[in-house]
Nucleic acid binder design. Structure first.
Lengths: 183, 183
DNA sequence: TGAATCATGTAATAGGTTACATGATTCT
DNA sequence: AGAATCATGTAACCTATTACATGATTCA
């Protein structure tokens, strides 16, 4: 039983939104600012094959009017389960520190798959870990800098500013979801 | 002639600052917020071996007082050349769009290796491409959103805010280096 | 003396990159 | 008819991950 890569989850998330062919998925990766997944066939088609082997997706046997060969893939019940399980994973400090892209990918799919109140729970965890990490990083930036080149110091500072911007965003997102959930 | 991975360049940059053992490099990756490189021996030691094979680094034969086996690595002249060549690469739109981490890594090493005025040139290119990309992304965010879930929209918006924060940072960094270079 | 840390490595595995290959369909 | 695009795949190669292995030195 092998595990699912980030690309695999990205595919599951997209297919949950809309059953698609490999080619359509490639276009999404190529043309929209979705993480930084490769649109190369050498990445996508083997990933689809693996998800099929795990029975998380199936090709629907529809042929359509044209005879052009085309495999429209959709989630199975197990696939939906795997996606939801991943989306419900707890947010850890390590995630905000070095896997922010994963958190944002999860968030992008979350409302559709889990609903508004689960999304709000996620955002609150996200905020908690992010604030904690901003504090840690702030300490670090105030510390060691003496010996470092200006550019290295500034690079660190850029990281801190990025996390602060993210923290402001999370607070904003929480407000929006509080409004949604209350209603 | 194989090419150098990002981990390889990170190692070159660190060794340019200070000759170190593999173990010391691992500690840097584990304990400082330097990109998100793995500190696992299965990544570092093979990477060091590859750089040695390319003659970009060498182990200094110093033994020190203790007999503990320890290989202190330092850049060769070719290694310095490879590092500088990488640092001098032009900044492309694609870099800011999906390889920001690479740009920041380059910047962190830049002042030490290339000096202040080359760093300023880099920052100006960075700013140009970043502003252009923020405009593109802004267009995108104002466009397609209709059909997307709120969380997907917000995820996109988070990306945009991140790039805006980065743009502010670049402007700030440019000011600092203008001051340095003028003097 | 035993635990923790210093220190360097290897082996199996699996996933992504790059490049190639093939053919159908649509557009001009 | 020819070019562009649609559409799916394969093969070689390389790198990172994970887990294991080994031994020296320091510290309590």
């Amino acid at each position: 039983m092998q595990r699912i890569t980030l690309l695999g989850y990205a595919i599951l998330g997209l297919l949950h939104g809309k059953a698609s062919s490999g080619y359509e998925l490639r276009k999404v990766f190529a043309e929209t600012p979705m993480g930084s997944f490769s649109d190369s066939p050498g990445a996508i088609y083997p990933a689809l094959r693996r998800l099929e082997d795990l029975k998380l997706i199936v090709a629907s046997p529809i042929a359509g009017p044209s005879q052009r060969r085309r495999r429209i893939l959709q989630l199975t019940r197990e696939g939906i389960g795997a996606l939801k399980g991943w989306l419900r994973t707890r947010v850890e400090q390590e995630d905000v520190a070095s896997r922010m892209n994963v958190l944002m990918l999860r968030f992008a799919f979350m409302e559709d798959a889990l609903g508004e109140s689960a999304t709000l729970v996620f955002l609150r965890e996200f905020e908690r870990e992010l604030d904690a990490y901003v504090a840690v990083l702030g300490e670090y930036v105030r510390g060691d800098l003496g010996s470092m080149a200006t550019s290295a110091q500034l690079a660190l500072r850029s990281g801190l500013l990025g996390y602060r911007a993210q923290a402001k965003w999370v607070a904003h997102a929480i407000k929006i979801y509080q409004g949604k959930v209350k209603r």
